[in-house]
Design a binder for these strands. Sequence first.
DNA 1: GGAAAAATCCCCCTAAAGAGGGATTGACCA
DNA 2: TGGTCAATCCCTCTTTAGGGGGATTTTTCC
Lengths: 207, 207
Amino acid sequence: MYKLKVLVVDDHPMVLEGMQAMLSQIDFVLVTGLARNAYEAMELLKADMPDVVITDINMPEISGIELATKIKKEYPVIKIIAMSTFNERSYISQMIAQGASGYLLKSASKEEIEEALQTASSNKLYMSLSLELSRKEQQDITNRPTLTSREKEILILIAEGYTNPQIAEQLFVSPYTVDSHRKNLLTKFAVNNTAGLIKLAVKYGMV
Amino acid sequence: MYKLKVLVVDDHPMVLEGMQAMLSQIDFVLVTGLARNAYEAMELLKADMPDVVITDINMPEISGIELATKIKKEYPVIKIIAMSTFNERSYISQMIAQGASGYLLKSASKEEIEEALQTASSNKLYMSLSLELSRKEQQDITNRPTLTSREKEILILIAEGYTNPQIAEQLFVSPYTVDSHRKNLLTKFAVNNTAGLIKLAVKYGMV
DNA sequence: GGAAAAATCCCCCTAAAGAGGGATTGACCA
DNA sequence: TGGTCAATCCCTCTTTAGGGGGATTTTTCC
């Protein structure tokens, strides 16, 4: 029987130990490693090439979202399951956007974890049962605009507090150009000023 | 060698398993039971009479605080160590008031748990408060400015996308007043425009 | 090779924001 | 009872942002 190789990433030792204990009770799973941060995770990835990475979203230094981005870029075949407490649900959409195949709450039972792994490894999307996305959160996912690479770039600079002329200088383009992109951003986000723009951008994890 | 009998109470299976795994690595500890809620805990208490109960604060139905009250009433000799995520720190004082002998964060390491148990069983008070805050949280706490109630109010309206005149109208004050508050906000957040302001405000959870 | 999408640039005009000042009132408090 | 702080209000001036146009040049992709 082929065992699913799983790597667990979390900065809390207790979660790491708990996950390992629960995963070891699932017969088709083999825990290949435990990482306390994204750096360790990337090391262990290279060494073991797991099938699935279960990662906490909220970690210091490098978040689970950033980690997911890196993993998907270097090893697109690896499935990623995001994990968080119920207090941090706003990040789910970001994880999904980064290619996560599932979402687990830390309150998950052994059965839920098992199901998440099975679902993810069969190329489907698993969502923690106890997880009812609020209407607003649903909207967040569906309404998040698609930005061009230039727009993303400019959005980040706006969020950093740079003005149009400053951004123009940095990007070696005309202030008019920056202004055009900025207007497009406002349109795409359906807001009418910078405050609304940045609020959404932060919530969507784009800055 | 006498082993310290420990009962763990938490509604999250993962924490329960993780705690057990970590406690089993401590040689002077014997885990006598795992309970998923206060009812189970009271049952197991009767059967095993542990020396220490490690309990989550935030549990459905009966909270850790209520559980502590009951335990202290019926078995005053049992030591109680409260446990929570860093999001729930406001309950600490209540736990202490109910006779808890220690306080652990769920991000605690094996060493911290060990120390908490030793401290508690020697009738002293263990606190893991300041220890394990992440860098980001530390920063958030130290850099997060203190706002007056009016400033908070106006900050939220700015984030909603309202302009100064619109805010002034809503709050029945002069646009000059709103402008003053807005300037104070920029100063307090140490940014120089709305983009930077809102970015931080969202990150600090103020909007 | 040609259409679509992205990126670039330009103009006008008005509203809003930001950087400087400063002043007054009332509340709380040591 | 004097000091601090919050909240209010006022003024000037410059820069930025936002709403409305439109146009051209690169990429990208089928």
